[in-house]
């Protein structure tokens, strides 16, 4: 209990004084995770929608693969990205290892299946609902997709936020591909792992509280920004 109260106190102190190290790692956490969420959404939302409304031979297989990838341990993804971008690996010449870009790539791999899978379920239900009407109204294929994406936008936002939630708290993969380098690739989660390793439980908890506050703030900002609260019954 003592660790928790002193952790909370430490968190408040560092936030109030705008501790430069805290600001730096928090900002990097936000940048990496929002970047990964944006890219994963660009890939995952259309992919999920496409799988939901098209019938093709490998459809079941693709869905099964997506669902399995959701359970992929981040450490495995981190190792995979490391091997890919290591100087001794196939993409080593790009020099991306131990950069925020590599962290974004690893997180995109981790959360795209989640975003796509949730989007797929949401759009599939909506498509079951809309199917007859859109056929009857003679909507073109592209018009159908537009209608589903637009009317399903709140469910799709939920899919993106689920991806964000997974990414912001992720540590295994970005520890390996980012390296937790001070002032370069250290983010909230890797800093928490580091401080826990040092036995600095109150600082680790303080960072944990900042992480939670950050996740809540982003969720609230997006919900208010898109005014889902005003029309919550949708």
């Amino acid at each position: 209990m003592n660790d928790i109260t002193s952790g909370l106190g430490e968190a408040v102190r560092r936030v109030v004084t705008l501790d430069p190290d805290l600001v730096e790692i928090t900002w990097l956490s936000l940048r990496v995770t929002l970047g990964a969420t944006a890219i994963a959404s660009l890939i995952g939302l259309p992919l999920g929608a496409w799988i939901a409304i098209n019938r093709f031979r490998a459809r079941r297989l693709v869905i099964a693969i997506l669902n399995s990838l959701m359970g992929l341990p981040p450490v495995v993804v981190g190792l995979f990205v490391y091997v890919l971008f290591s100087r001794s690996g196939p993409l080593g010449v790009l020099g991306l290892l131990f950069t925020p870009t590599a962290m974004v790539i690893a997180q995109v791999i981790i959360i795209t299946p989640i975003v796509a899978s949730i989007a797929h379920q949401a759009i599939r239900d909506l498509w079951a609902d809309y199917h007859d009407l859109l056929i009857s109204l003679h909507a073109s294929r592209w018009q159908r997709v537009q209608a589903l994406l637009w009317d399903g936008r709140r469910a799709l936002l939920t899919a993106s936020l689920a991806g964000f939630g997974r990414a912001i708290g992720e540590v295994g993969a970005i520890m390996i591909v980012g390296g937790n380098i001070d002032h370069a690739t250290r983010v909230l989660t890797t800093a928490i792992a580091l401080e826990t390793g040092k036995g600095n439980f109150d600082l680790a908890l303080a960072l944990g509280f900042v992480l939670i506050a950050l996740a809540v703030a982003v969720n609230l900002a997006i919900h208010f920004g898109t005014r889902t609260e005003r029309s919550s019954r949708w």
């Binding site: 809309y130 007859d132 009407l133 109204l137 209608a147 009317d151 399903g152 949708w234």
Partner: peptide, 17 residues
Amino acid sequence: TRARQAFVFQAPIVLRR
């Protein structure tokens, strides 16, 4: 003929808008 005919279903389908 597609756009020149219409259908009303027994359980009305409404768009979420």
